[in-house]
């Protein structure tokens, strides 16, 4: 994570010199970091610390409660809805991120290898221009079992109607797909940026050696794209764990809790069933821990990749 030279051992004299240079840099560095630092402390750090504190209290939305120790956490461990929400969320993330990443790689590589067309890049990003809320409503209409165009089309083509949002086993895949639709362009563009750093002459050389596109994808594109993939995976996965709008608009967690994802459940507990901030905070802390573990693991993997490349 640190800049390239800092990991190399340096002779003692140079180290001392660098040390004093570092100290001399401090005022400028602090000035550079100050505005973002204020924003971070005020709008991220402080709310987080406050939330962690709340998770040990019986606070409601309207009243600051007293310290209750681990009570909220005990309740969480014993709450079947929480565990269900956790399971549902992980299933969602696997589907959403799995599909989205594969498709984004495909799209990015196709854009990179096939065409420079700006129109195609524009089109692929358009779904991101629509808000989550509207996207969810749109697909609710398109995928309606009885009245949706997609089912009408399926039937005309001789297939069976599919209960996208109404079937307990299909609802999460459906929501995952809706969000893949919306975020595919965003993800593909980030990866595309990475692809552009791959020197074209590697491909030229590959072609001279008679390598096929598939072969070049495997031995040139993938290895060099991996670090970018790592970055994109961290960011999209953290976002995916926090899926909320689509569920809130399209299914309200249903049918029968089959799409009650963790952030929706937390929101429900905090804002509509009992205004129980203490408990909602405890579940948020659990989510935070999960996200942190995932991020750390991924950072490790990304760094490992880097060694492959060196």
């Amino acid at each position: 994570m640190s800049a390239e030279t800092s990991t190399r051992p340096a002779p003692p004299a140079r180290a001392a010199r660098r040390r004093s240079q570092e100290v001399r840099n401090l005022p400028a560095a602090l000035l550079f970091v100050l505005p973002a630092g204020v924003g971070f402390v005020v709008f991220f750090l402080w709310p987080t610390l406050r939330g962690i504190w709340l998770s040990f209290t019986d606070s409601t939305a309207f009243n600051t409660g007293g310290f209750v120790g681990l009570e909220n956490y005990q309740r969480m461990v014993a709450d079947p809805v929480f565990w269900n929400a956790f399971k549902v969320t992980i299933w969602y993330v696997l589907l959403n991120i799995g599909l989205q990443t594969v498709l984004a790689v495909v799209v990015a590589v196709l854009m990179h290898r096939l065409t420079q067309s700006m129109a195609i890049r524009g089109i692929i990003l358009t779904p991101y221009l629509v808000s989550n809320v509207v996207a969810a409503m749109l697909f609710l209409m398109l995928l309606d079992y009885q009245l949706g165009f997609v089912n009408e089309l399926a039937e005309t083509l001789g297939g069976d109607r599919i209960m996208f949002f109404g079937d307990q086993s299909l609802v999460i895949p459906t929501i995952a797909l809706v969000n893949v639709w919306r975020h595919l362009g965003y993800t593909a563009l980030l990866l595309f940026a990475g692809l552009q750093t791959i020197p074209e002459n590697l491909y030229e050389a590959g072609r001279v050696d008679g390598a096929s596109e598939v072969r070049m994808f495997r031995s040139i594109t993938m290895p060099l794209l991996r670090p970018y993939l790592g970055l994109v995976l961290i960011v999209t996965m953290i976002g995916s764990f926090q899926v909320f709008d689509t569920v809130s608009v399209a299914t309200q967690g249903g049918p029968a809790n089959a799409s009650n994802v963790i952030q929706y459940y937390i929101y429900q507990v905090a804002f509509s069933r009992g205004y129980d901030f203490g408990y909602a905070s405890a579940m948020s802390v659990a989510l935070l821990v999960v996200l942190a573990v995932i991020a750390v693991v991924q950072f490790r993997l990304t760094r490992a990749n880097q060694n492959d490349m060196a």
Binding site: T48, G51, I234, F241, F244, I266, L291
Partner: peptide, 9 residues
């Protein structure tokens, strides 16, 4: 900070 759930803030 990347990992802080929006619901927290």
């Amino acid at each position: 900070g990347l990992m802080v759930p929006t619901i927290f803030t």
